[in-house]
Design a protein around this nucleic acid. Sequence first.
DNA 1: GCAAGGTC
Length: 613
Amino acid sequence: MKVIIAEKPSVARELAKVFGANTKKAGYIEGKGFTFTWAFGHLLQLAPPQDYGFYGWRAQNLPMLPAKFKLAVRKIKTKDGVVEDPAVRKQLDVIKALFEECTEIIVATDAGREGELIFRYIYYYLKCKKPFRRLWISSQTDQAIKDGFRNLKPGTDYDTLFYSAHCRSESDWLVGMNATQALSISAGNRAVLSLGRVQTPTLAMICSRFNEVKNFVPETYFQVAIQLKKDESLFRAISAKNYKTKEEAEEVLEAVLDLARGYEKGARVEKVEAKAKKEPPPLLHDLSSLQQEANKKKGYTADQTLGILQQLYEGKLVTYPRTGSRYIGDDIFASVPDLIAKFKDHPLFGKQAQVLSSQKLNKRSVNAKKVTDHHAILPTGEPAGHLSSDRQAVYDMVVGRMLEAFHEECLKETTKITLVSGALFTANGTVIKQAGWRAVFNDKDEDKKDEDNATLPAVLKDETLVISNKAILERQTKPKPLYTEATLLKALETCGKDIEDEELRYAMKDSGLGTPATRASIIETLIKRDYIKREKKSLIPTDMGLAVYDVVKTKKIAQAELTGAWEKRLEEIKAGASVADFKAEIAEYTKSITQELLKAGTALAPITVKAKA
DNA sequence: GCAAGGTC
């Protein structure tokens, strides 16, 4: 018997279906000489400090550098404290029995670094010696699965991938556990002051933006607005220049030849620029873009959206949600017309689904090369039935985005009218000629200011127009906005892009900080630590968060570059570079950051006393 | 009591 192990039940079911195996047992499916079993993500984790004899949180223990890491069954928190997760233990027992029985293991965890680690941790924890081969597929259509099984790779081909995954895991433990204890201890051991490769740069981003806003000095400036009349329509134009003082603006205002001053047609059209613009449809959603949209439209937190999506996924209404890809492959695309047809009677989207059924689909979201372990989020087409309002809202975002993504471009015409009346004035307008994908939600373009979205009347060069009104506008420069969950998620995704060092920037280009599956929990961790809080839609630091930021802001652990540097080395390890060298560097860094924090954290003692009181 | 990573 051969046993196939997947990362999660849904994938195991999919594989079993392709093989025609359908005898369901507790924790596995069998048939046709194969057994399909699964993990639930990471079943095992690196054992906590006490498993190496580091009891309590004491400076003498630091730095904790286990000679050899141990694995422990994943824990959950219950009212009786932290215990082994019984479901995980049970599944491990199932896997153990199957591994003992089998002649060969086929590794079908997700095709990536963590997928490899999930399997290897199980394999080594169970002290299994059975031979294994690797299934490496990036799409789960029947054809891709069949091809993948015909083309299984030797398990050892992925040894270096495992080494890089293992290094990632141990390095995060070493730096995170030691830095956390060092800071907490030196601040008086009254509160958990956690630090980590991902959470600390995230905190730093929130704090630095907050400080920027707090220290921002707004500057007042002035504009002159005129109201013009062409036949029966009115529109507004704004001075081409901004003025620093009210006096300057008043001079310009005075010079305007308006009706009140007796000028029948005091404005002359200097220039009319009309441009046709094609606006392509948005890409399909990945988890992050959906979390951002749900936060903007409905105010859901990233964590809530992930939870809702997980429920929809378990209800088989949407495809795998924790994806970082906004694309699908050609195989999935082939099934899209049928999928769209299933929404022809949908109360909200039925009409657009029908429209789409009769036109050529836009292929902007179709690119097999940009599909990583999972493709973009799509509805499955299963009948949804009655859903709670939040599930319905998120489901509609998935369905609506699918219709948008395969829709035609939106055709717009933008117009810029330049006028002279004393000074120069401009009016910007946009007219949607053909809604295309924008017909799905009929939303306005939220990135644009209202005044740029005005509908302007047709005017000709050198035509003269009535100025029916004029005014001075007092404006203020604005700071960048505080982070919301939506903008923070975006920033986490893209934060590697402005790193100066070219190699580090390259190493982070596909990753950013954290992963789609973990970003929501990073935000929740910072809130749980009392480092940040939600205020309306914004995320703002607490006094504690700001104090921690002050201590670590110049250190490597607070920089996104640290992840870039690690990614670069991990990529090299994957390509065969020395593991020992990287481990030695991490041990060195662990020692130095621990020493620094053991001294630096004393500055935080007063604030932890206050927090405790 | 602690990281980041995965997922029911």
